[in-house]
Design a protein around this nucleic acid. Sequence first.
DNA 1: GCCGTTGTTCATTTATTCTTGAACTCCGAT
DNA 2: ATCGGAGTTCAAGAATAAATGAACAACGGC
Lengths: 199, 199
Amino acid sequence: MRAAPIPAFSPGVTRIQAEFVRECVEVFADAVQLFGVPRSVGQIYGLLYSSPLPLSFSDIVEQLRISKGSASQGLQLLRELGAIHISDSKLNAPLDKRDARQAGGAPGSAIHTAEAGRREYFEPELSLRKLLGAILSERMAPLASTSVNRLTRLRELADQVGDGNDFYLDRVKQLNTWRKRLKAALPVLGALLGSKGGR
Amino acid sequence: MRAAPIPAFSPGVTRIQAEFVRECVEVFADAVQLFGVPRSVGQIYGLLYSSPLPLSFSDIVEQLRISKGSASQGLQLLRELGAIHISDSKLNAPLDKRDARQAGGAPGSAIHTAEAGRREYFEPELSLRKLLGAILSERMAPLASTSVNRLTRLRELADQVGDGNDFYLDRVKQLNTWRKRLKAALPVLGALLGSKGGR
DNA sequence: GCCGTTGTTCATTTATTCTTGAACTCCGAT
DNA sequence: ATCGGAGTTCAAGAATAAATGAACAACGGC
């Protein structure tokens, strides 16, 4: 088990809000692990999900207390999956945020002076369909790419066995059926998750 | 990367059959990894899947060249998942197998004299629905059990924030929607995999 | 152009998971 | 009862995956 990830306290954020963030971070950290995605990546998504304003790279590093390396790789993966995107309001976001911070906060550990440079801000993608669709197809890709070749090879071998009964051919046929069903089921799943009918 | 798992040669089995087995073992070893199931467990299933006759514990250990510990744990998991079951013909299976082996084989490395004791024989489950259903629900269980409590907690926190807009409440609502959709989608997926319509 | 800052890459360290092997229990046969 | 093989458990080792941090590259402002 790992030490509970406790986001750093940011100025201008109430204790309740911080608690909300922490809970979200953990929820997503746990959830993504079920899909084989590293915990820290879920943390990043959870943080963005619970933030009213887009966050920058360094916000994430500071609040999650993770290394720049982890943050960079995690953000990269999330972008590849389409789970987050760069805020289009490159200009507004930082300004809004500075206001928000100044508004409520104990300015003790000062936000560094210059909020300058090529800083980018990230927002979470909120479509469940896109989120899961990307993860699933990413994980299915390697299987799909090799499975056809392998089944062909198995079929050849089964033909050569030539024992009395059709055991080997039957098994190959069944594998093929399974593959087809899986292939057919995935799009349907996507449709279900995208629909509004889940009540 | 790991050394290719090469099943040991068994008497009474042609080279082609051995090749078929090896290919199956690898196919399932790779496939199960996508669902977070250990490779060796997939190997065991693949071996059983490609065997015309039920296999015993020691058959598995010998042919896959894995330790008794791995075999035991792997078989246990597969049984929990309902992916294999103990051959009901506790009496027939071993007899059949001895016949089969004697029939074709170079009896050089003799099958040990006494086929005795409480030896059990395993067969693979062939229903895709059962196979995947068990894996999926096993992996979803931890999420499902905690998610309701966590969402309740998040809702409480969101109520307490009370900033001008409904940002936090909206996020909680969306999480709830996602949860419901996932819950609704899983049974449908099961139905799809069990149907005959996948052609 | 330079300079300070932002973000990336990658070898190393750290943490987690898987496998092994040996001691042990269980069961059936004698 | 006891003997021998069948199967399980678990601590220790090996293999794999993830996180770190420091060196590096990219960008914007001046």
